[in-house]
């Protein structure tokens, strides 16, 4: 896990996915081959743009590592037309609803005990100030 997270830090910190130069599709995470057409002509592409919650689940049956954070609110998020599954944060079960406007933030995802590494990655939170301010 130490080296896996390190190898993938750009994906995880900056939502770097793939854009296929052959078929034009964009997907997450980064892969050297296009998962749609198999082409090798894939470039790194940062996922950007408006993010919206497609669907979500409030996960109570979590692993021991996630006990501090339970329930975990897991979302399927559409960001700029690309769907990703990621954790939501700064939202309570009573506040979350499909269709809500989101934005990416950097958060802890897994902490390897008291002495191990802290693994950071992008999560999504409700966009600050609703759909207007709080952005670019």
């Amino acid at each position: 896990m130490i080296t896996r997270h390190w190898r993938r830090r750009h994906n995880l910190y900056k939502l770097v996915g793939s854009r296929c130069r052959s078929c034009g599709r964009v997907f997450y995470p980064y892969s050297q081959r296009c998962i749609y057409c198999g082409s090798r002509e894939v470039e790194q592409a940062r996922l950007e743009g408006d993010a919206r919650l497609v669907s979500y689940s409030i996960v109570y049956s979590v692993s021991d590592e996630a006990k501090y954070e339970a329930p975990v609110i897991l979302g399927m998020v559409d960001i700029g037309g690309v769907k990703v599954i990621a954790e939501l944060t700064d939202v309570s079960p009573g506040e979350v609803e499909a269709g809500m406007s989101l934005e990416p933030v950097l958060r802890r995802v897994t902490v390897n005990g008291e002495s191990g590494l802290i693994y950071y990655a992008v999560k999504f939170r409700p966009r600050l100030g609703g759909s207007g301010s709080g952005g670019d």
Binding site: S55, Y56, S57, A66, V72, G75, I85, E87
Partner: peptide, 24 residues
């Protein structure tokens, strides 16, 4: 494990997302 499974998805989290999607 390189994508969805990096997050704390539990054994049923993705199923939960799909079930809500279906119902909606």
């Amino acid at each position: 494990v390189e994508g969805d499974g990096f997050y704390n998805i539990g054994h049923a989290g993705i199923a939960g997302i799909l079930m809500r999607l279906y119902m909606n």
